[in-house]
Design a protein around this nucleic acid. Structure first.
Lengths: 344, 344
DNA sequence: AAAAATATTGTTAACGTTAACATAGAAGAA
DNA sequence: TTCTTCTATGTTAACGTTAACAATATTTTT
């Protein structure tokens, strides 16, 4: 952008007025003579003036920019969330800087540092899987940086979270299995320090309890959110329950379920005849695989919209309440839970 | 972010040195005593210093930010492109501002104005469907704003474009139909002022010509890139060819094909028995619909990567050549082209 | 030991804008 | 007419940083 830049200074010289008048005229600010205003705006247009938001942001300490941290950009769930965020942000006159933590704690730190340096007005973040240290979130609170967690948050830390009721959804999912007659139900859990991990496990336990099924420690394996970890987790699970293998598995999410299915097949077992499985999140692939996966649909686009909306409220009013917003989920029954088969 | 901010000035006062020394120490710049450097860095950390990129950008006239304009954020193709862009940008130390033109010319103008005002270092853009006036692109060139088109570009305007060889891909697609025995092949074209529209139509015509099939004007309808437009276009096509309806249709893209399928069904015809159809782009839905769609897979993620890479080269070297980069496509044969049926 | 070179630190201005206060002129009120 | 109140514009400083040049202290060379 080399050709000698046009600034309000240039315009001021051209129209023979002070830069302040030009600034006011261009911002349609009060107390500028109508003639002056029109004149300035005409000249600005003619000269090809492009306002410099950087300078404006510096003096006003406001960028109209929202920082978004996504833990897994390849996941359709998050892509839809981004879409929701963009829509709301656009309507409110904000723009978004997109960053990607790739499920890495370190990289998440880096994303946040960048966003702070770029002086975004607020941050939307979904906690990376490998995060175990919440110091930086507390620091952000201390800095009064407006922030909202979406999908994956930290409880009782003073930051609003927008997501689903994972506990309830996992409970419904598990109860669905129980309703089909399964008694020996295992759980491939996610990271328990993340609310999604803890909640889904809790929902699983709640369902068992309600139906007076004793939870077995060996039936719960803390795996992870990725396909590979689901695979490893399932292998471990099969290994430690050889004498009494489960008849159904509640996986923490769909990718994890995909991995688990691989492990089940590898062990020479069939889904759902030998082991039924249900996932969580409704990944696009879930309906495409050989035995389509029973899962829970999360309203990704809505999550993005609501989170962005809440964040902007936080940004624009110091008194906006910190609260958790819970959106509805929907049970999607497909073949992997073996609804049409005999069970035991 | 209210608590009295720590700036290099604050630090300078604390360590009893000039702000310039502090600046140098923090930037690991040459010519600072090692002791001083360590001291300053320690104090900075202790005081919770957060560099202000806004101020830095202002003076250096460089933001390390890339502006991305996406025409349809709900489309999985573009979501994958974004993923590719993010990856390359991250590796090169750039961040991305994501904007959405929603296929609207006006809104695209707005996106570009914003990006200019935010002083991004470069712009990646895929032309919105309703764009017919290229003035602003020329203006960007004049401003020497580094820029690369991805997927949808404008020919011979002096801006690099990263995409696929739409002509060739459409030719292959059409030839596939011809190879299956179809002779009466129609085309639902996209906007012809966009390269993707023009190229795909050309490929369709090339294939016909090569096989000595006369192209009929009534068999070509300029529709649009969206599902609804495909629907309307197909209705029009059926209407204007009542005496001699086509046996196969080459749609400009998958959404358009979906719409066309609806129109075909609505007319009481079957796909592919009565009318075969092929799309373009491999939308995620293409394999899910009742009669899975034969289409062309475009390497979306790769497109994003290559485009970002090219843009960064443009940014970092004034002499980078303007050129069109062409990536390979892959024909995906599914049922909608009726490969297993009789044809005429 | 003086001169030259180098290493380290400091000073000033600039990036492009707006906030806050100041001023001049015009219009209205007394 | 004079005082007051607007209206329109101007002046100055600030936002937080770096570039360019200046100055000082230290080391090296001759």
């Amino acid at each position: 952008m080399s050709p000698k830049r046009v600034t309000i200074k240039t315009i001021a010289k051209e129209v023979g007025m002070s830069i302040m008048t030009v600034s006011r005229a261009l911002n349609n600010n009060s107390n500028v003579n109508d003639q002056t205003k029109t004149k300035v705006q005409q000249v600005a247009k003619k000269m090809g003036y492009i306002p410099n938001h950087i300078a404006k942001s510096l003096v006003q300490r406001k960028t109209f920019t929202i920082g978004v941290v996504v833990p897994e950009i390849a996941h359709s769930f998050f892509q839809e969330v981004i879409r929701g965020i963009e829509e709301i942000a656009y309507d409110a006159g904000y723009h978004i800087i997109l960053t990607h933590s790739a499920e890495s704690f370190q990289r998440e730190q880096l994303c946040l540092e960048t966003l702070l340096s770029k002086r975004v007005d607020g941050i939307l973040l979904s906690v990376a899987e490998t995060v175990t240290d919440f110091k930086i979130y507390k620091e952000l609170i201390r800095l009064k940086m407006p922030m909202v967690f979406y999908d994956r948050g930290i409880n009782d830390i003073g930051i609003s979270t927008v997501g689903i009721d994972g506990t309830k959804a996992a409970e419904i999912l598990t109860e669905h299995l129980i309703g089909l007659g399964y008694m020996k139900i295992a759980h491939l859990a996610g990271p328990l320090h993340l609310s999604i991990g803890a909640n889904r496990r809790q929902g699983y336990l709640n369902a068992l309890k309600r139906h007076k099924i004793r939870a077995k420690k060996s039936y719960i394996v803390e795996a992870g959110l990725k396909e590979k970890q689901g695979y490893e987790g399932m292998k471990k699970l099969l290994n430690q329950t050889k004498k009494n293998p489960p008849r159904a598995v509640v996986a923490v999410n769909d990718p994890s379920a995909f991995g688990a299915i691989d492990a089940i097949k590898e062990a020479g077992l069939r889904v759902p005849e030998d082991i039924a499985i249900v996932g969580f999140a409704d990944d696009i692939r879930s309906q495409l695989i050989e035995v389509p996966l029973t899962t829970v649909r999360q309203p990704a686009y809505e999550v993005g919209k609501v989170a962005a909306d809440k964040l902007i409220k936080h940004i624009e009013s110091k008194t906006e309440a910190v609260e958790d917003l819970v959106l509805n989920t929907e049970l999607i029954v497909r073949k992997s839970c073996g609804w049409s088969k005999k069970k035991n």
